[in-house]
Structure formats: structure tokens, C-alpha cells
């Protein structure tokens, strides 16, 4: 199982399509930096193929005022949760 981090908004960049292609059936996706925009209810649909396996970094949501607007089906984790995800994953692959 691999972890994929994505730091671009799906409203801004198509790199999310490559991320999704590279995700195996039990891989997990962590949205960080500008990528946390993907946790908004209107944008989270781009990640419906991996629903239930989408995480967003709390500090980056908070800093952008987006924490309260985050979709229910996105798991919010802080930096310690980020580290735990990297512990569980064989590899962490970065998309930007």
C-alpha cells in the first residue's frame, strides 16, 4: 500500500488525474497545501473513485479557513496523522 500526496487543487491542475491513475486499490491520498481545496464538497467529486481513502491536512485547511467547509467523507489529519500515514505506507509518492 502506498500513500500519495497531492499539493495542487483539482480546480487548478490536472495532476490529480495522474495521481488517481497511479493509485492502487488500497492506496491512500493525502491532500496538502493548495491540494486541500480538493476537500471542498464541490471539488471532492474528482476523487470519487478513491472515496473513503481521501485525507486532508488539518493545518493547511485551517490556515486557509477551509476546515469548516471540508466535505464529510474526507478524513482530516494533523501532521502527526500525516506521519502515521507514511508509517503505514510502503512508499510515499509526491504529486505536484
Amino acid at each position: 500500500m502506498n500513500l500519495h500526496t497531492l499539493n495542487r487543487s483539482p480546480a487548478d491542475s490536472r495532476v490529480y488525474q495522474q495521481t488517481l491513475q497511479a493509485m492502487g486499490h488500497d492506496d491512500q491520498l493525502l491532500l496538502i497545501e493548495d491540494g486541500v481545496q480538493g476537500a471542498l464538497p464541490q471539488l471532492v467529486r474528482y476523487f470519487e473513485d478513491v472515496e473513503g481513502r481521501v485525507y486532508a491536512l488539518k493545518e493547511d485547511l485551517e490556515a486557509r479557513g477551509l476546515l469548516g467547509l471540508c466535505a464529510d467523507n474526507v478524513h482530516v489529519v494533523d501532521v502527526d496523522g500525516f506521519i502515521e500515514l507514511t508509517e503505514q505506507a510502503d512508499k510515499t509518492i509526491t504529486w505536484y
Binding site: N2, Q21, A22, D27, D90, K91, I93
Partner: peptide
């Protein structure tokens, strides 16, 4: 592509 991610030690 998914297979390549797991069959290489480092990506």
C-alpha cells in the same frame, strides 16, 4: 503504472 510503483524500491 500502479504495478511499477510497487515493483521499484524507490519512486
Amino acid at each position: 503504472i500502479q504495478a511499477a510503483m510497487t515493483t521499484h524500491r524507490l519512486v
